[in-house]
Computed example of a mutant assay.
Amino acid sequence: MPILQKGANAPLATQTPVVRIQIGRGAIIGDIDVSAYVLGENGKVSGDPDMVFYGQRQSGDGSVLLDSASDTETVFALNLAATPARVQRIAFAATVPGAGADRPTFAKAASVALRIDGADPIVFPVPIEGAIETSMILGEIYRRAGAWKIRAVGQGFAGGLKPLAESFGIVIADDPAPPPAAPAPTSAPAPAPAVSLSKITLSKAQPKIDLTKKDGAFGEIKINLNWSAAPVKRGFFGGSRSIDLDLGCLYELRDGTKSGVQALGDMLGSFGSAPYIELSGDDRSGAVTEGEWLRVNGARWNDIKRLLLFAFIYEGAPNWAATDARITLHAPKSPPVEIRLEEGDSRKNMCAVALIENIGGEMRVSREVRYFSGHAEMDSAFNWGLRWVAGSKD
């Protein structure tokens, strides 16, 4: 396995490398933003779709996909054969959270590494000792004489994600954006909308948000549940067990149909037909870095009246604090909406996380984070009216 030093390069033996950004958090608290940039010869993007990050998980040309992200690893899947001839480099960067004089630098991290998986994995342990920067360009994949290579960069950058992205030519929207002015008559094409770096966290102080359709539809809506994979102890002699935390939802369609989507009982739903909601996989340990996903067919949003998202401790966790769980809703061309499962009741294994309602064709997301002893108690609290019996997973 080749191990690169800063400034070194190596050839890539595959057109479909997997790039892993691995960060030991150390003393850094909060989300570390990892991003990729599809660049031309001048080191700039050709447009905002060339930035891949938590709010835009795939490049416009489809060559770079943010495949998964956790607290310690972000994974990009690349298809270099799909890159247009104008693309000469793909850069990977990371930014620590915070603002002002108290913002941590990369010196506070335990470790940073860039790993390229392929026929012969390549690793670049990024030097961070004494680093004073809050952003860093970790490495880049670039063309040379018709072939692709990887270069270990490890270059610090002053400022946060916004100035870093702007250095690559990305147009960043101010947050919050001012209300749009009435358009003046013109024959010139409208400018492309700026990228929003906002990640909306619903809390007790801000419990609701309304999402508006883009281009007349929502597209594919993805809902992710992620949690800590660390085993938890079960008393003095019980050993330890990994947490099995399940994502699911209750749904009500416009025609009055009510039911649920969850792994328990193999009620996995369907994306292309009613209920237009589908559970993608069942992670029983939290070891899958991307967690669990619900997919909602936004093209059929008018057929859906409401959804109640829930998380359910199937086994392994004695309390909710041990899970460090959060649900994130991704709607196309909208900032991610995050809800953390806080203030849990260790006596109750069910959390109703969020209520998603169809309000006049738009989408209202309301934070609930209410805890119950099981499905039936939660159902009764939200007046769903379903009958529940005991079940299990194979």
Rank of each mutant, 00 (worst) to 15 (best):
S392C: 08
L66A: 02
S285C: 04
G374W: 11
G43I: 11
T323P: 12
A109F: 00
L250H: 11
G146C: 03
V45K: 13
S111C: 01
E252L: 04
D50H: 08
A173G: 15
F53P: 10
Y142V: 05
P180T: 08
N9H: 14
V153Q: 09
K213N: 06
Q206F: 09
D174V: 09
A8K: 15
E315W: 07
G62K: 13
A182K: 14
D246E: 05
L78I: 02
H330G: 07
K305A: 13
W148A: 01
E357Y: 03
M350W: 13
L211D: 03
A147P: 00
L329R: 07
A101E: 10
S59T: 07
V296H: 11
L161F: 05
S187K: 14
A352K: 03
G118R: 15
F310T: 05
K44D: 00
R370V: 12
F76M: 03
L4S: 04
A147E: 14
Q5W: 04
A325F: 10
W301M: 13
D102Q: 15
K348Q: 14
T186A: 09
G235C: 03
V75L: 08
L39P: 12
S242V: 04
N42L: 12
F92E: 02
R370I: 03
I21S: 09
V288K: 15
G219I: 07
G269F: 02
P180W: 07
S203D: 04
L138D: 03
G98P: 06
T72H: 09
R387E: 09
I172Y: 09
C249I: 01
D244G: 12
G24E: 06
N224Y: 15
K213A: 14
G160P: 04
P193A: 08
R326Q: 08
Y142I: 07
I277Y: 11
S280L: 13
S68C: 01
T289C: 01
P178Y: 06
G256E: 05
E129R: 10
N42V: 09
Y37G: 07
E41Y: 03
Q58C: 07
A99V: 04
A101F: 07
R89G: 03
E343Q: 14
G248Q: 05
E252D: 10
E73K: 15
P185F: 06
F372T: 02
L80Y: 07
P335N: 12
A182G: 00
N319F: 02
L78A: 04
Q88I: 00
F237V: 14
A352D: 05
G26E: 01
A113N: 11
S135P: 03
K199A: 00
L114I: 02
G62P: 14
P332F: 08
E357I: 01
Y276K: 02
F236T: 10
P335S: 12
N42I: 02
K208P: 00
S167F: 01
S70F: 04
S196H: 06
D255L: 01
G286D: 05
A36P: 08
A230L: 13
L12D: 06
A91P: 10
P191R: 06
A165F: 01
Y371S: 11
G286N: 05
R284L: 05
E315Y: 10
L197W: 04
F168P: 12
W227M: 00
R57Y: 00
G154Y: 03
D210N: 13
R115L: 13
L197S: 08
